[in-house]
Design a protein around this nucleic acid. Structure first.
Lengths: 342, 342
DNA sequence: TTGAAAGCGCTAACAC
DNA sequence: GTGTTAGCGCTTTCAA
């Protein structure tokens, strides 16, 4: 292998610019305390040498690492969205991200440990599996922000979507379109399912539709949706709209409905949850509830930074409003007007 | 915020164990040169203090960082598989991984730059977008292993799947099932697309099916697949089988096909590429071409380490054979027997 | 405005 | 076997 040149150091730049390393450090960090003239000289020298500061040495010396550790599931599509947002949020806040993946062969514990070793100042955990107690223990050592999962503990900051509100939005949207017989296909014991179920019920009641509340057991997958849809077809009278636990499940619902000869949204409207890529497919165009990843990630980083800065914060849990994304699977109700049905 | 205790250092452990820092260093690194007795004492002290070595200080001091930089696409499911394998391969080789994600807002250049700053010894780039020339330039500074993409340059190591062979396997499988009208939905300018396209053409010719060669523009996403499937539905006569650039794209194809009332594999067979988790879903059961991620990642790490160690290597390109995984989207061709339907 | 010098936590020579 | 010492590349007092 060819010999590679040693990377230039501050000292190299200093030598070339004819100044001290301390001065170079000031210039490179863009800190106050250097004349325009030296700034110029140093910058030019650095440029000519192709100088790049050594993050590790810098971190070692300064008490602050300005590093945010992020644990994410390597196969979790939604985590990809979150990581994307975290990068920009961290950037804005002047922090760097250290990524640590959870894989089938690398558990959360290892992922966290490696981040700790890297001297991250705070941890942002995406949908962590660890128990709240375990997480709280971690938070004893450094600020921990739990994202996209509930965790009630005075030591933990939590940022998550208001799933209940998501279902309120779905129901409100359908009611505004004139629907009354709105069924919910739930997510069983999946995380978030309980809150979405509750949100559906509450919203129905709020609209005085207590008598129309119908819950169908569903799940996370297309298959669960397909099964639920078959059950739905037997409902008498048939609902004119259905809210589904998530997009995948909604796809199964759509599939069975359409095969049964029902037009969507002509005969029946469908609302999903997640705004996953599936929902956006041009031939699916699923009306759905989108989680606000940008806000979630911004809040997560802001909160981590606040903890680090000692900024006093009141609520430990930050619940972000989801957003209704209207596409092509919802339309005004064409069934009999009120009074005729139920 | 509560005051957090300073993390214990080597010196703290040394003090507690009543030995020198050097000795502690030896014990912690599990290096030779310490008596069993001191080993025991030091380990116990470290344990009591909850000591964790500081990666950065360690890297700063030793000339070697034993850090492998990995650039991956945050939304690329297959990259998730590769990262998984890289972690274990690196672990085996005694290296750590530094992950740097490419997101819609963070390009490859930034991803690479941050890794360089972290003093990674070598770079493993998953399906990089940069030109070969640009990659070669990078390789001028440190060993670069390009994964899952072709790049012919004497300075670049490449580990990739024999994508051409993959399409041979797909076509052979379909031909063996009696199919002749086999169309290929390609990946456009995506890495690997050209070779898969070529593999498809070659395989068709090898079977004397020159006249049946049909290429449909596709891409990497479900969207692309959906669009291609719509084009495919207009083909006259309609193909009885289709090979698709990747699994995601194949999913879009499947969906449109099924919504159009075609049975898969009854009316048309579909073969994907990647054997991603999508393909394995129980309601999808996509026949696909599996890339040997374990071998790919092992080779990538091995090669990076060889470069670092100065081990002489002969070929710069390592091509791994893919494997056909037959699931439920391919079946014998029924075109002859078909009377009614669709 | 600039420079000298003292470390950050660790490893690697080299003594003892 | 064990301790002493000199840095890795950088930031940060503190003087000049």
């Amino acid at each position: 292998m060819t010999e590679r040149a040693r990377r230039p150091t501050l000292a190299d730049v200093a030598a070339r610019a004819g100044v001290s390393v301390a001065l170079v450090s000031i210039v490179i960090r863009d800190a106050p305390g250097a004349s325009a003239a030296s700034r110029q000289r140093v910058l030019q020298a650095a440029d000519e040498l192709g100088y790049r500061p050594d993050t590790r040495a810098r971190l070692l010396r300064s008490s602050r690492s300005r590093l945010l550790g992020v644990v994410f599931g390597v196969h979790h599509a939604f985590h990809g969205d979150l990581v994307t947002g975290l990068y920009t949020a961290a950037d804005r806040a002047g922090y760097e991200l250290a990524l640590s993946a959870v894989t089938p062969q690398r558990d959360e514990g290892r992922a966290v440990a490696s981040l700790m070793q890297d001297r991250c100042e705070a941890l942002v955990l995406l949908g962590p599996h660890a128990s709240t107690a375990r997480l709280a223990e971690l938070a004893d050592r450094l600020p921990v922000v739990v994202v996209a999962r509930a965790a009630r503990h005075r030591a933990l900051d939590v940022v998550r979507t208001a799933d209940g509100m998501g279902l309120h939005q779905a129901v409100d949207h359908l009611v505004a379109l004139g629907h009354r017989r709105i069924t919910h296909v739930d997510g069983g014991r999946a995380p978030g399912a309980a809150e979405r179920r509750r949100g559906y019920r509450d919203a129905m009641r709020r609209h005085g539709l207590d008598a129309e509340i119908r819950l169908l057991p569903g799940g996370l997958t297309e298959q669960d949706g397909a099964a639920a849809a078959r059950a739905l077809l037997d409902l008498e009278p048939r609902p004119t709209a259905v809210t589904v636990f998530n997009d995948r499940c909604a796809l199964g619902v759509l599939d069975v409905l359409q095969r049964a000869g029902l037009a969507v949204p002509g005969d029946i409207s469908v609302v999903g949850y997640d705004d996953s890529r599936l929902a956006r497919l041009s031939h699916v165009k699923l009306t759905t509830i989108a989680q606000d990843t940008e806000q979630i990630t911004t809040l997560a980083v802001t909160r981590a930074v606040d903890r680090l800065d000692g900024t006093p914060v009141t609520e430990r849990e930050m619940v972000v409003a989801p957003r209704l994304v209207v596409r092509a699977t919802t339309a005004p109700c064409t069934a009999d007007r009120r009074g005729a049905g139920s």
